[in-house]
């Protein structure tokens, strides 16, 4: 243990640190207030068309109304479920694919050009085909959320597997380890940080997949509300959904970030 020491200028340093933190929080708060204030004022004074851009108060009113009649929770629940399902399926499938790519060099060499094509392809363009194939329901929307992140996470994780120091494998092989043992004891634990970093990217990606999926086919969910609001020219509804999506996506991202911190701390 290092003995606790102190010095008069250490307190000054701590104070300066606390002040800096306060200033940053303050700045963030001011931007938040200014944005909504400016939106509200410019909408009321008709600087912007309130029919198109609505206003924070109208969005808030709508939110309260939908919260009370339960439809907020209804649509939100569906979209959250689809996004989480897409995220988990896509990520896990990506990791499994990365495992096979790592396990067999030949397999990875064979599928390499197809992975390149599939990775470069804008996955949302597959939407109509997926919907026709799987039918207009949860399954096709979840597939959209999953397919958009599966290849990119497979490639990133596979790269991570390759960056593991080969000498760890040498240690295990000197004890006669099998390939699966190499994977379990060295490759997987050593690349956990890489795997978690793909989680963060995939949260964002599966939101894209699910919202586009809902645009195309759904009759419920936040993405559906955006398209519906657009079609009936109810832009308060569009902005209401947008605010909810922004909030939920940020929340999920933070959740993954906390999970990452916790896991890395556990792994030290």
């Amino acid at each position: 243990m290092i003995p606790k020491t102190t010095h008069p200028s250490y307190d000054v340093y701590l104070q300066r640190l606390a002040r800096e933190k306060r200033l940053i929080k303050c700045g963030q708060f001011i931007i938040f207030i200014c944005f909504f204030l400016f939106w509200e004022v410019s909408s009321r004074l008709h600087w912007i068309d309130p029919l198109i851009f609505s206003s924070p108060s109208r969005v808030a009113n709508l939110m309260v109304r939908y919260l009370l009649d339960g439809s907020l929770w209804f649509h939100m629940r569906i979209t959250i479920f689809e996004t989480l399902a897409g995220f988990f399926i896509g990520t896990i499938a990506g990791i499994i694919l990365a495992f096979f790519l790592w396990y067999s060099k030949r397999f990875s060499a064979i599928v390499d050009p197809y992975l390149v094509v599939f990775n470069a392809l804008p996955k949302v363009a597959l939407g109509p085909i997926i919907i026709v194939a799987l039918g207009p329901g949860y399954s096709s929307i979840i597939t959209m959320g999953a397919i958009i992140c599966v290849i990119v996470s497979a490639l990133v994780v596979y790269n991570g597997f390759h960056e593991v120091d080969a000498n760890y494998i040498k240690v295990l092989q000197s004890f006669g380890a099998s390939k699966w043992q190499n994977f379990k004891e060295a490759i997987l634990p050593a690349s956990l940080p890489t795997i978690i970093s793909t989680f963060k990217v995939n949260v964002g990606l599966s939101w894209v997949g699910v919202i586009v999926g809902e645009f195309l086919v759904a009759s419920k969910g936040l993405g559906y509300l955006i398209v519906y609001g657009f079609q009936v020219f109810n832009f308060t509804l569009v902005l209401y959904s947008l605010v909810l999506i922004a909030f939920l996506a940020a929340l999920m991202y933070q959740g993954v970030a906390y999970f990452e911190k916790w896991l890395l701390k556990k792994l030290r």
Binding site: N167, K170, L172, F175, G176, A190, L267
Partner: peptide
């Protein structure tokens, strides 16, 4: 079994010292 020691220790950072020492018999 043939013991092999490398330039560096290559202990697994996510395992405790005891688990690191015990890896040989577990792998075998």
């Amino acid at each position: 079994s043939i013991g092999y020691m490398l330039q560096q220790d290559y202990l697994f950072p996510w395992k405790t010292i005891l688990d690191n020492v015990c890896i040989g018999p577990k792998i075998r």
